[in-house]
Design a protein around this nucleic acid. Sequence first.
DNA 1: CCCAAAAGTCTACACTCCGTCGATTTTTCT
DNA 2: AGAAAAATCGACGGAGTGTAGACTTTTGGG
Lengths: 204, 204
Amino acid sequence: MSGHHPARSRRGTERKGDVRERAILDTCEALLAQKGYDAMTVGDIAQGAGITRGALYFYFGSKQEVVTALVARTVEHLWERSRATAQTDEPRRAIAAAMQRTVELWNEHGLVMRTAIDLSLTVPEVGELWSHTADLFTTAITAVLERAGVQAGTEPDQASAMARSLCWMIERTFYHASQESREKFRKASATCEHIWLLSAGLNT
Amino acid sequence: MSGHHPARSRRGTERKGDVRERAILDTCEALLAQKGYDAMTVGDIAQGAGITRGALYFYFGSKQEVVTALVARTVEHLWERSRATAQTDEPRRAIAAAMQRTVELWNEHGLVMRTAIDLSLTVPEVGELWSHTADLFTTAITAVLERAGVQAGTEPDQASAMARSLCWMIERTFYHASQESREKFRKASATCEHIWLLSAGLNT
DNA sequence: CCCAAAAGTCTACACTCCGTCGATTTTTCT
DNA sequence: AGAAAAATCGACGGAGTGTAGACTTTTGGG
């Protein structure tokens, strides 16, 4: 979605515009934390990045496009992190590791992740990005469930369908918890882990 | 939140304004289905209700207030329905009944419920309304879990905390499923029921 | 039935934000 | 150095918001 402004793929020195673009995204993230999506105006972002509205429109076509680019940048991190995670084969260990990783991701990128979830409905590109991310998580959960002995398949009581609901449970629980204290956050994570274990048939 | 326009509490005949107010809310609900929250303008609502923008501001102070009133009206139904539901004492039966009821609620009021969830972050009053609703559901789930033998308490592996996460799971799963086919909706419900049973220690 | 007060409605205005355009300046590359 | 490409600016027209003041309809007591 950042395909409308000039390509600059293979190039040693960085164009001035690259710096500006990053500044815009950084400012956007900061404003998101300060005033939230609705209150944040295109003028605000431009000002924060040290340019005028007119100039900002050289980089992005709208506030939505700016935020979409920001989400894309963040989600990229999530994907890298997912890929980098080694597959543990012992289910209990795998579940603990996955929850630990999720906590870290929400700690680092909670703000943008929350924003992505909120905009999923109204901004199709963001919806796309986030649903792809959710698919990655669902796939990972499915694998763990199957290894723990849950029957593979898409019927309501089989691994795939259960993984999807567990994914939504984790998303929503963290979404809310990450707006509260660190303490609640930690506890919420433990609760999700516990339910995941039970769902995998691994009674304590 | 509808406290700014004249009180008309105890009165036999209905004021003209009462009819208009209902017309506004109905129009708002219809437009929400047609074009969604963002695209819907105050002018649209007024026109649909047969008055001008100026007149609409006599009833509500903003688009947000209109939607908040609509959410309040809908949520009222949910509360009534919850109160009316008899407490079944056999956990398996209680869980099945609760999921059945939830399916019906989402079928009838899915649109407004989705809207309420979306606006929870940005419109404090809606957030209030919805979090109260979630509390009711969480309390009900907690009761069932405890009756099924899950230890009472707020620690991560005890009834109260688990109920909260299960509530979010159900909310999110239905939120997504209700935008797709009836078939997926039915299956998603079965999956939630299954996970709830496992969480309650009621293995199939 | 009358008529004043209350309730409801309208048009017009001032404001904010948005997205676009053409002109202009700065950067980049050779 | 100097032309092409990249970046920036200010100004405009449009859409939506919320408010103000005048006007009309409805209501209810005498």
